[in-house]
Design a protein around this nucleic acid. Structure first.
Ligand SMILES: [Mn+2]
Ligand SMILES: [Mn+2]
Ligand SMILES: [Zn+2]
Ligand SMILES: [Zn+2]
Lengths: 154, 154
DNA sequence: ACGCATACCGATAGACAGTATCAATTAAGC
DNA sequence: GCTTAATTGATACTGTCTATCGGTATGCGT
């Protein structure tokens, strides 16, 4: 049986969630046919507010007023549209973070959890070449680098 | 409440699981103080029998006579002692496969599931250098390459 | 502004992978 | 053989994520 206990939304002209980042992402989504809804704006806003890689559960906790399924769906949509990228911790825990343009990789600090983009590093080409040598045609890859950031170095 | 329904083992001099690979791995474990048990040999034997990366559940299914927890524990032990390595599929499914000496990476065929070792490829050095440039001290990494093997190429 | 079609939402239940418990069992050493 | 600690396995449990599905709001055409 399915619940009929439903929360009424929008009764009280809620303050529209808005900021440069949020508006930008919402616009990107609109261009692809996705609607501009308040729960979705809340998710995006919370994503943008995170300082470092976060888990889906982090978001759920930060958005008690948004349904769990909605948070997960929103996150998935943002990943599919390349607005957010997924990072994998050493223990296989999955985290997310705002994507800063294009495909790239991250270094994750095992101490403080900070992440830094891996720049000046074209592993892709090297990997593709190595794959070729084995008769493989590379179509994708997953790469995470773990270590200590400057601040957490001993 | 905990079950007291316990299976009697060893009543009937079971044929000892033995083969070159199994004996070798069991010996390695013995050297590190781990006991030589039949369930453990069964796990190792099943691991060795797999032709390509397999899941923990695959093993459980292949070993209905071995407890679920035992399979997982055995697998973890083999990973910790570097006898087996873990590979990660694009959908984050975790698989295992016999390790062929030392640290290295794999290419995984998205079609047939085969894996090939990535050789002649020292990404490590490149990654470490790139990390340095960002003030990171690299301590580990996770790398998987996906594509199509020679046989599955169109 | 009004109405419609449908994308979207959220409470809930369920699927799934992996782990914690803990009494019973057994390998290894003396 | 006896002792002791490692190991096992049935089971319960945890945490993450997905499937359902009736109710709801958005975007668009009018
Ligand atoms: Mn990224
Ligand atoms: Mn390997
Ligand atoms: Zn740090
Ligand atoms: Zn293949």
């Amino acid at each position: 049986m399915v619940a009929t206990n439903f929360k009424h939304r929008g009764h009280d002209h809620p303050a529209p969630i808005s900021s440069a980042v949020v508006d930008d992402i919402v616009a990107q989504l609109a261009r692809q046919g996705y609607r501009d809804t308040e729960p979705r704006r809340l998710v995006i806003s919370a994503v943008a507010a995170q300082g470092r890689p976060f888990t889906a559960e982090d978001l759920c906790a930060a958005l008690p007023c948004v349904g769990r399924a909605t948070v997960y769906r929103g996150l998935r949509l943002l990943v599919e549209t390349d607005q957010v990228c997924r990072v994998l911790l050493e223990d296989r825990e999955l985290r997310y973070q705002l994507s800063h343009q294009g495909h790239h990789h991250h270094m994750l600090c095992a101490i403080c959890g900070a992440s830094a983009d891996l720049i000046d590093c074209d592993v892709e080409d090297i990997l593709r070449a190595a794959a070729d040598r084995s008769g493989f045609r590379m179509s994708g890859h997953w790469l995470e680098v773990y270590g200590r950031c400057g601040e957490c170095a001993d």
